[in-house]
């Protein structure tokens, strides 16, 4: 595949531009909504906080929302890129492979059994669910001498997702309390989250990002095929294990904050590959920034789609994502 940006200087320039655009998007996300505020109000909310409605909304609702959208979008996109590199399957992503559904099931079960857990615990519960379902899908769909068969793994993911969501609704029906508390969370959304939720997961997600970026070189080698990687002296098992752990932390953390938001993990890595090619040193940072832009923008759009009520952003990303998915499914390795 020929990358659109074929010189390092272009890549740096576009990356910086993207970061700037992300800043613009986040500012817009803070300014616009059911009520629009000017830049001066924005500034004074932080420099001269006076407890007025406008300042309160900006500080407790809009800013957390923009920040959460950016972090979650980045985490999901990087997790998707890692999964695609690991499984060598262009359709791999946290939502389609059941990782999000597994995290959701774990949280719902926990709520039904023990009531709503504290923020600290809910993160670990989501991690456990994500790890369990990711391991299940990988163990199911991979293996054999031919390596993981893309279709099998995709089907295994769909089956695990179906299983998890079926059990989720079973558990929800068994306990009214859980239904009440968790329903809003079953469709991914970044609205109505407190900043504390983000700060609870941020350390883990940060570790996930660091691990992912540190793996860029080994992943480039691994992408040439497992045999090549082994013969070049790579300890592929260790690389895969760390990458899988990063996926679990990134996707699980994102789900713990925002609920299952789909398709970012598919759409963004493909766009990024078109822009900068397959080198993970460039691919992963681009994924992070572009994923953040997509989710912040989608969240902004979701406020205006059905004014005055809001569409959960997970629905919007799913609707944006499906054409992409169909496009990928219609060509390349899957086309024959």
């Amino acid at each position: 595949m020929v990358a659109l940006l074929d010189r390092p200087s272009y890549k740096i320039a576009v990356l910086l531009l993207s970061v700037a655009f992300l800043a613009v998007c986040m500012t817009a996300s803070v300014m616009f909504g059911a009520k629009a505020y000017g830049l001066s109000t924005l500034q004074s909310a932080f420099s001269a906080f006076d407890g007025s409605d406008a300042h309160l909304i900006i500080r407790t609702s809009r800013v957390p929302r923009a920040a959460i959208a950016a972090v979650v979008g980045a985490a999901l996109a990087v997790a998707g890129a890692l999964m695609q590199a690991l499984t060598r399957n262009p359709l791999a992503s946290p939502s389609l492979f059941g990782v999000n559904a597994g995290a959701g099931l774990a949280l719902v079960v926990a709520v039904a059994l023990f009531g709503f857990p504290g923020l600290g615990q809910s993160v670990w519960i989501a991690f456990a669910g994500a790890a369990l379902s990711a391991a299940a899908v990988y163990a199911l769909g991979s293996g054999g001498r031919a390596g993981p068969a893309p279709v099998n793994m995709t089907l295994a993911g769909a089956a695990i997702a179906a299983f998890a969501s079926s059990l989720t609704s079973g558990v929800l029906l068994g306990s009214d309390k859980a239904l009440d508390q968790v329903l809003f969370w079953l469709v991914g959304s970044v609205a109505g989250r407190e900043l504390a939720m983000l700060t609870a997961v941020l350390p883990y997600i940060a570790v996930g990002f660091v691990a992912a970026f540190a793996l860029a070189s080994p992943l480039n080698v691994l992408a040439m095929g497992e045999d090549v990687a082994v013969s070049l002296g790579q300890r592929t098992a260790a690389v895969k294990l760390v990458a899988a752990a990063a996926v679990v932390v990134l996707a699980g953390g994102a789900v713990a904050v925002a609920g299952p938001i789909g398709f970012i993990g598919i759409v963004i890595p493909h766009i990024a590959r078109h822009l900068v090619g397959r080198d993970h040193h460039w691919l992963l940072p681009y994924c992070a920034v572009l994923g953040a832009i997509l989710l912040v923008a989608a969240d902004l759009g979701s406020r205006f789609l059905l004014m005055p009520s809001e569409v959960p952003v997970g629905v919007l990303t799913a609707i944006i994502g499906v054409p992409f998915f169909v496009l990928i499914a219609r060509r390349g390795r899957y086309a024959e």
């Binding site: 359709l91 789909g262 799913a318 499906v322 998915f325 086309a335």
Partner: peptide, 15 residues
């Protein structure tokens, strides 16, 4: 292709 498109579409539908 039928299977893959189906899987993709089904997750959008469930959203």
């Amino acid at each position: 292709r039928l299977v893959l498109v189906g899987i993709g579409l089904s997750s959008a539908l469930s959203a």
